[in-house]
């Protein structure tokens, strides 16, 4: 992905900023300009808490080019507590320990590096909840 393309996605990538529909209140991630629930405009930024659970997962034994460093790595659909599903890598977990329903939390990690002299791309991944009792 080109540098400007990565740069303009920073808010979503680094901290899971989405949108909330002004009309029906649906929380949206990724951000989009028209609410898929009620087809009204949705432009209001919304900060997701980054907590959720694994809706489904897989383990890639054949990495995508640029992701070889992590192979084999788990990828999940994470159901955020505010509603949306997010596609993301799981990190700090052994693939055999992942299960559907596992509580996870968002962390910001390296997604890929565009070669040794290129951009380092950071973004959200999810990991098993470190300390369930922590508030906030």
């Amino acid at each position: 992905m080109a540098i400007p393309q990565n740069w303009r996605l920073q808010n979503q990538r680094y901290r899971l900023t989405g949108e909330v529909c002004n009309t029906c209140g649906a929380k949206l991630f990724p951000p989009r300009d028209v609410c898929p629930e009620c087809a009204k405009p949705a432009y209001e930024p919304f900060q997701f808490a980054g907590k959720g659970e694994v809706y489904s997962f897989t383990v890639l034994s054949e990495a995508l080019a640029g992701y070889e460093a992590y192979e084999p790595y788990p990828v999940a659909l994470v159901k955020l507590q505010e509603g949306p599903l997010v596609t993301a890598q799981l990190t700090d977990v052994d693939p055999q320990d992942v299960h559907i329903g596992m509580p996870v939390e968002m962390v910001t990690r390296k997604l890929t590096e565009e070669g040794e002299d290129g951009l380092i791309v950071y973004g959200y991944k999810f990991r098993p909840v470190l300390k369930p009792a922590v508030n906030g």
Partner: peptide
């Protein structure tokens, strides 16, 4: 590309 593939997701996955 921006919300699936960048997370290391291949088509089979």
């Amino acid at each position: 590309a921006e919300y699936e593939v960048v997370n290391g997701v291949s088509f089979v996955s």
